[in-house]
Amino acid sequence: MTANIVSITGGKQSAFIDKVKEILPQGGNLNLCLTCGACASGCPATGLADMDPRKFLRMCAMGMDEEVTTTPWVWMCTMCMRCIYVCPMEINIPQLVFNARAAWPRENRPKGIRDSCDMAMRTETNSAMGTAPDDFKFVVEDVLAEYQEAQPEFADMQAPIDKEGAYFFLNQNSREPNTEPDELVPLWKILHLAGADWTYGSKGWAAENYCLFLADNKCWEHVTRVSAKQADDLGCKVFLNTE
């Protein structure tokens, strides 16, 4: 038991939670916890790794930096925001979790997420599966041609890439072009029938952002900027999230 005792002596040191507060607007209200337990009551990750959002926040508040920046629980929280949704004090626990992830040395972060982020960083498409612009272009054109032929009602259907001035800029999860290209088609058909003026971008078409999950600020910002820039460069009006 004694090993478990939290000992508080001497002056206040800047703790992990203080650093996060500096980053967030209004400090994310991180200090305001009433310990009411609404977050823990509704958090799907409550109980995993013997943790819940209230306990996590409490440990942060008590300055237990060592433990809060090493608990694997931060990778089990999906930052789904059920906590902040009902929190009387609107405390930004998801951002606290995000920053706790970021406090992990990059090399210690879950390999699966890290690899996906690294992959996305390697190509301008942002694809976590590393799909290069040309590969994407090839798959799209190939599938399109196949369907135009097999289903004559859709002979006019288009799946443009980098169409300048298109109204919608579409993103697409990498899974379809890579592993199940037929799954691309229903969306195209819908857009076609609705008469939507749309385009993919050869850069930044991938919808996923594992760098965000990895809490790699520099990388996720990069990934996001690539997509946004492509949409802007093409003069699209609406960035249309397809998932």
């Binding site: 005792i5 939290v6 002596t9 306990k55 409490r58």
Partner: peptide, 19 residues
């Protein structure tokens, strides 16, 4: 020089001692 206050933080399930 101090007064040590020991209490339990139920949420963490830990004892805390403050000098």
């Amino acid at each position: 020089h101090y007064a040590n206050v020991t209490f339990t933080d139920v949420i963490m399930g830990r004892q805390v001692v403050v000098s």
